[in-house]
Nucleic acid binder design. Structure first.
Length: 156
DNA sequence: GCCAACGTTGGC
DNA sequence: GCCAACGTTGGC
């Protein structure tokens, strides 16, 4: 299976790319996804070794670096944690509703690739992220888009 | 802070 | 099954 590419969003106020780099082993359990479409991507398509564009929403609005998938979809433990805001009383432990994957930090971009820059970049006009009202926190990225964004991020 | 877009919930 | 109300996301 060919390596696939994804864009994953995070509000840096709650979990930033820095937090990922500083996490033990540079890894984290990417939990808290409570959207069925995003869940389905995790379940059906995200594989170990896939590349991830790590996007900061809110104030930054930029891809700040690269991560990779180090563990495929597994039940999101926070859905069963009564004290967690992601607690889902309807989720059955025998057949969990929500999934998480594990991500590892890979590379900081020299230059964060801003939403504005991506809007202007030739070759990125079809990007999922740029669609009006696109709120998905896990999005597929084509090999071509990946190449372009990575090249932008590595240049000064 | 505002508001458009979107997903979810719940009454009917 | 429809749709209004509501909550959340996220760009501006």
């Amino acid at each position: 299976m060919a390596r696939r590419f994804w864009l994953m969003k995070s509000d840096p106020e709650s979990f930033s790319f820095d937090d990922l780099r500083k996490a033990p082993g540079g890894k984290t359990c990417w939990d808290g996804i409570r959207n069925y479409q995003a869940r389905n991507y995790l379940r059906d398509d995200v594989r170990v070794g896939d590349g991830v564009l790590f996007y900061h929403s809110q104030a930054d609005k930029a891809v700040v670096g690269l991560a990779k998938v180090v563990k495929a979809a597994h039940p999101d433990p926070t859905q069963f944690d009564r004290k967690h805001h992601g607690f889902d009383p309807d989720s059955d432990p025998k057949s969990p509703t929500w999934l998480a994957v594990d991500l590892a930090w890979e590379e900081d971009f020299k230059t964060p690739v801003t939403l504005g820059a991506m809007k202007k970049a030739p070759g990125l006009s079809e990007m999922f992220l740029l669609e009006k009202g696109s709120r998905l926190s896990v999005q597929p990225v084509t090999a071509e888009e990946w190449k372009i964004v990575v090249a932008m991020g590595r240049s000064r």
